[in-house]
Design a protein around this nucleic acid. Structure first.
Lengths: 252, 252
DNA sequence: CGCATACTTGAGCGAAATCAAGGCCTGTGG
DNA sequence: CCACAGGCCTTGATTTCGCTCAAGTATGCG
């Protein structure tokens, strides 16, 4: 009956990797320019100014680089790889609140302290921005703020769709929705679209508010109904998109 | 088996109330200045410029003033009253993604089209801003964008907490969390805090991803355990905050 | 080879949904 | 004034979907 709530997750010793000792060496100009999504807007501006506040770092797979409750000092832009963002309950239950891919920002949803923990799903490269320094830069390049506002708006839309999923959809509807979402970003041809999951079943379960057993059983059912095919655990091909779409909306 | 998804909700005829015919009459200077939360920041600026793009309107209780799927042309700041924001599934299942009170923005979570429907819980007064006009104003007052970014960040934090609730918490934990959240904004003294719910049980259920029966049963249990007292349906007083806090975290 | 990790499958259970009935309040109309 | 209808809430009985517990299988690695 002890209070686990305020405790940091177990294996965040790695956090030192984005501490001062690793970052003084190399500012990431290309990353800063390319991945903060401002190439076009700042084409005439002095990009070196942005580069001065951007520091790159690499996070190995499985490591936590940002913990719920920590002071929100940094702001990240994921450059390469995938990461998951999650919240925990004292007894270990976990909810993944989002997955991030290349180009995504991490830390928008932070005022004083981070509201979630971030863990690398693959080896990850990211740009770190000090929030205070970035804020100073906002003065000079207000367009920066606009981009972040747009990103936050998109995240809010996604979050609301996820609330509908978690609050009202059945296990089958959740899986169908999840699989379809995985295709939109990766060339959505009619049929035989391949969804690549960069995460194990346990993360799918924690994202959809289910258990791994239910995820597994539901995927098996979809397989038996010839809606999907599972080549290996991380590659699922959609063979009947129409049925999957109907299932996602709860129409069958 | 028809497609209800794209259809607007039934009773949004009222939307005309925020159409051109009602708004030419009175620009809401005080509202624009006071409620966009910029008094301090724009103290030296020409507030009339903001007022030129702000139009007030009144929405009677129960009416929908913004529908999921509609082009996101406007942006609102709620001035008085309460509203609920929700998403529907084709078969009628509903998820409330948020409640808004005085001072809150509506429409941050919109890129091209609104991602939810908004309905007045009480008589509502709000400021409407045309997004295009507002965007022009951003050029002059970049601080505006900063405020919106901060608001969006806060909303994201709340949304993520709600995902944890919907995905992983039990009915009792959901209700306890909900009641406690209701107190933070309204003077949270130790005990005997009164939570005023501006919405019926059905909305609580739709917000927490439960049925009205489960909400009712759970509240009854809390009453029987002397954790809360229900004077009337819309006024719940918390008599044992410690127990409620433990219940919210799943500790008992 | 043994072990660990991840996934699948089955049996049984339980929390919340569903179905159904009844109470309480408000407003309306005879 | 009462009768009645319609919301809204509560309570009870039953069902069900997904969870828990428990094997069992496949794959990768030292």
């Amino acid at each position: 009956m002890e209070d686990h709530l305020a405790q940091p997750p177990p294996d965040r010793a790695f956090k030192c990797n984005i501490g001062p000792e690793h970052e003084a060496s190399a500012h990431c100009d290309t990353c800063a320019a390319r991945h903060i999504g401002l190439c076009d807007a700042m084409i005439d501006a002095d990009l070196s100014q942005l580069a001065t506040v951007a520091h790159w770092c690499r996070i190995p797979k499985g490591h936590i680089f940002l913990a719920e409750g920590d002071p929100a000092q940094n702001f990240f832009n994921l450059n390469r790889g995938n990461a998951k963002l999650f919240k925990n309950l004292p007894d270990g239950r976990r909810q993944i609140v989002g997955f991030v891919a290349a180009g995504d920002f991490i830390g928008l949803a932070a005022n004083n302290r981070y509201s979630f923990t971030a863990e690398a799903l693959t080896d990850v490269r990211l740009c770190r921005f000090d929030r205070a320094e970035l804020r100073a830069l906002f003065m000079e390049f207000p367009i920066l703020e606009r981009r972040l506002l747009e990103a936050a708006s998109r995240e809010l839309v996604v979050a609301q769709a996820q609330m509908l999923l978690l609050g009202r959809k059945s296990a089958m509807e959740r899986l169908a929705t999840f699989l379809l979402n995985g295709t939109t970003s990766q060339g959505s041809r009619r049929n035989h679209t391949v969804v690549t999951l960069p995460m194990p079943r346990s993360d799918v379960a924690d994202y959809l508010g289910l258990t791994i057993e239910t995820v597994s059983r539901t995927l098996t059912t979809l397989k038996q109904r010839h809606v999907i095919e599972i080549s290996c655990d991380y590659h699922i091909s959609i063979t009947d998109r129409l049925t999957l779409t109907n299932l996602a909306a709860g129409l069958s």
